[in-house]
Simulated assay, not measured.
Amino acid sequence: MTSAQIPGDVSLGKIEQALDGGDRPPVGRYRLDLATGEWAWSDEVYRMHGFEPGEIVPTTPLMLSHKHPDDRGRVDGVLRRAAETGQTFSSVHRILDAKGNTRTLAVTGQGRRDPATGRVTELFGYFIDVTDSHRAAAARDATASIKASDERRAVIEQAKGVLMVVYAIEDTAAFDLLRESSNRSNIAVRDIATTLVNLFFGPEVTDVPTREAIEKFLADPRPQVDA
């Protein structure tokens, strides 16, 4: 399956529109059909896993078989929770590609519900290859550095995923942006992350936040009071 076979999405499209030019890690789109367990990958995701576009049919068992043994259980847990809740998520993990190389990928996404039943039917989002800038040790250190509840960690991870794509930076650098904003404003990182995620995925969002708008928010995340 190629990128042309992955339908566009309003929320993820907002991230794409916020991207600017220049060098950035390889980014690919995916969609997971929860009923069949089959994935739709853009060409970039095939290559991240060591395949030529369309060479294989990606499925959940195939995906998990490529995860690094030390990360497989955690990734499976992330996917299961996302399939149950449909909430936004982000994770950094290692894979063993088809050529036997170890790569580090960040994945961010959310669920889509069937309007008739309310059940989560699809997961969709981005894979980001951060191998060159973010090794496995850095991934473990970044995860260990966030001492928080599952809910707090989830929103912070999702905010980092947004910043990683928009700024083309690694996981730890994205968290540094949130922490610096928190230090300047004396607002908790979790609260800044929650507002940032809502700028992209909030139910009332109609306008695409630009990179400049994100920079302005991070510079002063305090609630704006109308005169």
Results as ranks from 00 to 15, higher is better:
2 T>H: 10
3 S>N: 08
4 A>C: 15
8 G>C: 02
8 G>Q: 07
9 D>C: 09
10 V>G: 08
11 S>K: 11
13 G>M: 07
14 K>N: 07
15 I>L: 09
15 I>G: 02
16 E>A: 11
17 Q>A: 11
18 A>D: 07
20 D>L: 09
22 G>S: 01
24 R>K: 05
26 P>G: 02
27 V>E: 08
27 V>C: 10
31 R>M: 00
33 D>V: 06
37 G>C: 05
40 A>K: 09
42 S>N: 04
43 D>K: 10
44 E>P: 04
44 E>F: 08
47 R>V: 04
49 H>A: 13
54 G>R: 05
55 E>L: 00
58 P>E: 06
62 L>D: 04
63 M>Q: 05
64 L>S: 12
66 H>F: 06
69 P>M: 02
70 D>A: 08
72 R>D: 03
74 R>I: 15
76 D>I: 08
78 V>Y: 07
79 L>A: 07
81 R>H: 12
87 Q>S: 09
89 F>H: 04
91 S>T: 09
93 H>F: 13
94 R>H: 06
94 R>K: 08
102 T>C: 06
105 L>I: 09
105 L>S: 03
106 A>C: 13
110 Q>E: 14
110 Q>W: 15
112 R>C: 03
113 R>E: 01
113 R>V: 01
113 R>P: 04
114 D>V: 10
115 P>A: 02
115 P>H: 03
115 P>M: 11
115 P>L: 06
125 G>H: 05
126 Y>D: 01
126 Y>Q: 02
127 F>V: 06
128 I>F: 03
128 I>Q: 07
128 I>E: 02
129 D>N: 10
130 V>M: 04
130 V>A: 01
131 T>S: 11
132 D>G: 13
133 S>P: 14
136 A>Y: 14
136 A>I: 12
137 A>C: 06
138 A>Y: 14
138 A>P: 03
141 D>F: 15
142 A>S: 15
143 T>D: 11
143 T>K: 14
146 I>A: 12
146 I>R: 15
147 K>Q: 05
148 A>E: 05
150 D>V: 09
152 R>I: 14
154 A>I: 06
155 V>W: 05
155 V>D: 00
155 V>M: 02
160 K>T: 10
162 V>G: 08
162 V>A: 13
163 L>D: 00
166 V>A: 01
167 Y>D: 06
168 A>M: 05
170 E>A: 12
171 D>P: 10
176 D>T: 15
176 D>E: 15
179 R>H: 14
179 R>D: 15
179 R>A: 13
180 E>L: 15
183 N>G: 15
183 N>H: 15
185 S>W: 14
189 V>M: 04
190 R>Y: 10
194 T>I: 15
197 V>A: 05
199 L>F: 12
201 F>Y: 04
203 P>T: 13
203 P>L: 11
204 E>Q: 14
206 T>M: 09
207 D>T: 11
207 D>A: 07
209 P>L: 05
209 P>G: 07
210 T>L: 03
212 E>C: 11
212 E>S: 13
213 A>F: 08
215 E>W: 07
216 K>W: 10
216 K>Y: 05
218 L>P: 00
219 A>S: 14
219 A>D: 06
220 D>N: 12
221 P>Y: 00
223 P>K: 00
